[in-house]
Design a protein around this nucleic acid. Sequence first.
DNA 1: TTGAAAGCGCTAACAA
DNA 2: TTGTTAGCGCTTTCAA
Lengths: 334, 334
Amino acid sequence: MKGVPSRSKLTIEDVARAAGVSRSTVSRVINNLPGASGPVRERVRGVVAELGFVPDQTARGLASGRPRAVDVVAVTPAPADGWMGTHPYFSRVLVGVTSVLDPLDVQVHVHQVTPDDATRMLDALAAKATVGAVLAEVTPDLAARFHRRCRRVVSLVATAAPVPAIEVDNIGGAAAAVEHLHRLGRRRIAAVHGPDDNACAIDRRAGYARAVAAFGLPEIGDVGDFRREHAYRAAHRILARDPAVDAMFVACDLMAAGVVQAVTATGRRVPQDVSVVGFDDSIAAVCANPPLTTMRVPVEQMAAAATRLLLQDTVPAGHRQRFPVELVLRQSAG
Amino acid sequence: MKGVPSRSKLTIEDVARAAGVSRSTVSRVINNLPGASGPVRERVRGVVAELGFVPDQTARGLASGRPRAVDVVAVTPAPADGWMGTHPYFSRVLVGVTSVLDPLDVQVHVHQVTPDDATRMLDALAAKATVGAVLAEVTPDLAARFHRRCRRVVSLVATAAPVPAIEVDNIGGAAAAVEHLHRLGRRRIAAVHGPDDNACAIDRRAGYARAVAAFGLPEIGDVGDFRREHAYRAAHRILARDPAVDAMFVACDLMAAGVVQAVTATGRRVPQDVSVVGFDDSIAAVCANPPLTTMRVPVEQMAAAATRLLLQDTVPAGHRQRFPVELVLRQSAG
DNA sequence: TTGAAAGCGCTAACAA
DNA sequence: TTGTTAGCGCTTTCAA
């Protein structure tokens, strides 16, 4: 009879009694602090698991003088006001995090930071982290630096080896997109890439390159910065340079929406003249005209997984968890 | 010398001492509970203001056995999984609320509820509210019912008279949109309305009706439900019934994106053949093809204002605060 | 109407 | 390595 976790009450005191130790010892164990022998640690963990004890976050916050919170951080150039709120990717991250924190008594703190003060900000966060940080968009070097100062961190993008990360198969996804385009009979498949310093963008670019190479197709491309306007211009450049392009693989849906705008602006039809495949399956995909065929990334679930990882008493260094990407067919291709 | 609020410390004890009363009395005053005479109440409030005292939310949560939180609630039919995360409107609400709660130690709880269990859920929330509820999308009757059981509530849509609300000039905004279309020379301006039970939709519809009437133009329209797919079909119906329509006013950008898709699907060009104006200025507006001319609604700021209202010790019944809507010119019209 | 006192569940010295 | 003892800042009986 394991039974219901019997919410409501069940304090550290109960655990202490059941384990035959003091509250301090239990506290040390659940906080992963030194000062508890192996065997005792084991026993306490066992009791915690058996009883289904969940420490009261409010009490921890009061006692430690620092309320419990998860920090969501994104390093982006010149964020417009309220940007994170409207952004197709970040808003999904927020919801994923919120969804798992909701029943617990943990807050969410959002930090949108420019590259300039990224180092300073991250150091500050690392110093006062409680539950930990979800890195929604942080470069590998910065992530590694953070991880050196605080182990309670998970990245949502590919990152430095020791930093725990929740990933998606960007390379495979990009390749699958190209394969889909090839299956459709497209033979001049261009790409609009994301920024060079972004791990996702790099991988999606690699996947594209690998796939076109495998098909013996030419590699045609331009670089953007994950923003629609840049992608719009990039698509124009590509079409001007190579008017025979008959398909475009784009690094994210927001950019793809811009690409579709550019393609139709040149008088070409999507998908008849140029097929377009995006990445993410965000709201931008269904708002584009025509709606985008895209590679779905389960952002909310990934963010939720990252948050659950932070909630554990210890976040294993180098942890990796990979989510699948999946082709979603709409009208822009196929 | 008012000086800095001197964060860090400053407890209820300090206030009590400065006011020459006990902590209990201060607590009663800041919680707006009975058991404090008028004069004392005045004095304490004065000291609180002068000292810039801000009660520790974590401590309140622990002591009262109920962690402090703001509940964001939206009643919507059959929400898709993760819907709120991707939704152009709700994600902005979330960010607005989060932005003001971030520095405080208050949580955000998101409740997306279907009409079926709306009453039950809202009653439950009203019974255990702490900071209060932000009604992102709740019908007037339900809002009124909530307000009867708990005064700590603010609606983001027009609602029953006693319920405090943060509003936007939907009627004027819709009229302005039609005026813009008229200025462009459009004379057969159709409308795709939002759902009949939504206050915003009703007002926007009224604004449209008023404006076309003022111009002596025909009223042409169809009803949707704030979803893109419905608007897509509604636009097709309108065009089938009345092929000479040369403009469409749409109740929200998400729907407008669908309208643009429908219009171009019939072989018409936007804006040359049919101009389209949306409402909200959400991410959907820039992803549409062509990008949407729309009426900007400052959702984040409204949600922030609502949250700040809840943070006050008392939320005045019938409170109204109105934000402006503003025409944003893009390519779909003008 | 007011105040005194006992916690809320946990962390963090300090002893042992 | 472990336990004891104070609180963290506030709410909430219970007396006065």
